[in-house]
Simulated scan of single mutants.
Amino acid sequence: MFSDAPGAGGAPSAAPAAGRPGAVGGGAASVPRARPAPRPRPGGVPAGHLGAGRWGKIAQRIVPDDLQPDVLRLELTELGDAFRAYQRRPEPDLAVLADLHDRKARAFALWADVTEDASLREEAVRAEAAARTTREMNANRLGIEVDGGGPVVQRLLTRGQGAHARGVLEYVRVHAPLPGAEARLAVLMLSLRAARAGTGNVTGQDLSGWLQGDAERVLQDLVDVGWLCLPEGVDAADALDSRPEEPTQVTVPSLLPAGPRPLPFGKVTRARLSGWAQKVVGDRKLRKKKAGAATRLLAVYTAAHSRPDGRLGERVEGAEGAEGDGVGLDAVASFCGLRPEDVTEHAELLVAAGWLTEADAAGGRLRGRLGERILPLSGLV
């Protein structure tokens, strides 16, 4: 029984002969050769083995198994695993990603110190920048300062949509066919309705809300100059009578998709921008103050060109209080259909309505800050 067991019916197998690796005596299984250590990658660090057939790898680099100190080797290995796990997450978490970039920056800086490898130092610097950018993106999304202070604000626009909003405003500033503020306001709102296909629906309530008593005149002026087309048999008065269940379809020939689209964004962004602009021009306190078209255009412009904290304009490094430098007065005036010297008067109306907490037009730039209730409408410059 069990006659094929080792040693059964005879002497045990002989041990391998000395000096002959892999040689065996009769009946013994052959011993596989040891695999050579992997070669270093060209221009990279030596490859390293972490046991159990697993390799430590991060940022396209192999972590050497003899890297010292051990705590650095383990941190680099765990970081590589953590980044790969993050990529498999069903939803992004920018706070988690920023922390990973911070850890990577510290680990690569230490790795560079240990190995005197300049490329590792460069990778550490890039990781620091990535952490900072990711943290700013997360703060903008949540509506808080980068240092985490301040209340969380529910934003209507994302940062990308805010950039599209400023693109629409610039398009209106340059291409509005008539100089008056009322016409420019109508061009803005109708452009947002027709941005995708060159056509859009409007009701009499829309037009009256935007333009009050000037609606019929302004609409007819836009038709007369060829910027706007109404359906056959429909005039401006008919459009003002249209109801939500039977809106009037208007056409903006310059936005028809016959050539390159001047307002290149999708239907979700179009709807979001249109709703955003409607909230601005229909603001309750602006209506209560009987703000005219120029003042409401200024409200749109200041909202679109504000930072997450409400300050107008981009952050300027070294600016006192990090207030930034506002927005150019000439561009503001051109968009609103005003003379530059008249912008201050309308900015003061916005302050009175609580839209801005302060306003200053010195030095050819409009500076100010959105009121707290307006922060959800910020364009997140």
Rank of each mutant, 00 (worst) to 15 (best):
M1W: 13
F2M: 13
D4W: 10
D4Y: 09
P6C: 07
G10Y: 06
P12G: 11
A15Q: 11
A17G: 12
G19I: 11
A23M: 03
A23W: 12
V24G: 04
S30H: 12
S30G: 12
A34Y: 08
A34F: 12
P36M: 08
P38C: 00
R41F: 00
G44T: 02
V45S: 05
P46H: 07
H49E: 10
G51T: 11
W55M: 14
W55R: 11
Q60P: 01
I62R: 00
V63H: 06
P69W: 08
L74W: 08
G80I: 02
A85K: 12
P90Y: 02
E91C: 13
P92E: 05
L94Y: 06
L94G: 05
A95L: 12
A95F: 07
V96T: 13
A98W: 00
H101W: 15
R103S: 14
R103D: 12
K104Q: 15
F108A: 05
W111D: 06
A112T: 12
A112I: 05
E116N: 07
E123I: 08
V125R: 13
A130K: 15
A131Y: 13
A131H: 11
R132C: 07
R135G: 07
R135L: 09
A139F: 04
G148A: 12
V152I: 12
V153N: 00
V153G: 05
Q154A: 08
Q154P: 10
T158Y: 01
R159C: 02
Q161T: 03
A163R: 04
A165T: 03
L169V: 02
V174P: 07
H175I: 03
A176C: 05
P177R: 02
A183T: 05
A183M: 08
A183N: 10
L185I: 15
A186D: 07
V187I: 11
L188E: 01
L188T: 00
L192T: 10
L192E: 01
R196M: 06
V202A: 09
T203S: 03
G204T: 10
G204H: 04
W210H: 02
W210D: 00
Q212G: 12
D214N: 14
R217H: 09
R217N: 11
W227P: 06
L228C: 01
D235Y: 08
D235S: 10
A239C: 14
R243K: 14
E246I: 13
E246Y: 14
T251W: 05
S254I: 08
L256W: 09
A258W: 07
P260T: 05
P260W: 03
P260A: 13
R261L: 00
P262A: 03
P264Q: 09
P264G: 06
K267F: 14
Q278N: 08
V280E: 07
V280K: 01
V280H: 05
G282Y: 03
G282H: 01
R287T: 03
A291E: 01
A293C: 07
A293Q: 08
A294K: 00
R296D: 01
T302N: 00
P308Q: 01
G310T: 04
R311W: 11
A319D: 11
G324K: 08
G326T: 11
S334V: 06
G337E: 04
P340H: 06
T344M: 15
T344I: 12
L349N: 06
L350Q: 06
A353H: 03
A361C: 11
A362W: 00
A362N: 08
G363T: 10
G364C: 04
G368E: 04
R369D: 08
G371W: 00
G371Y: 00
R373Y: 03
L377W: 03
G379H: 04
L380H: 01
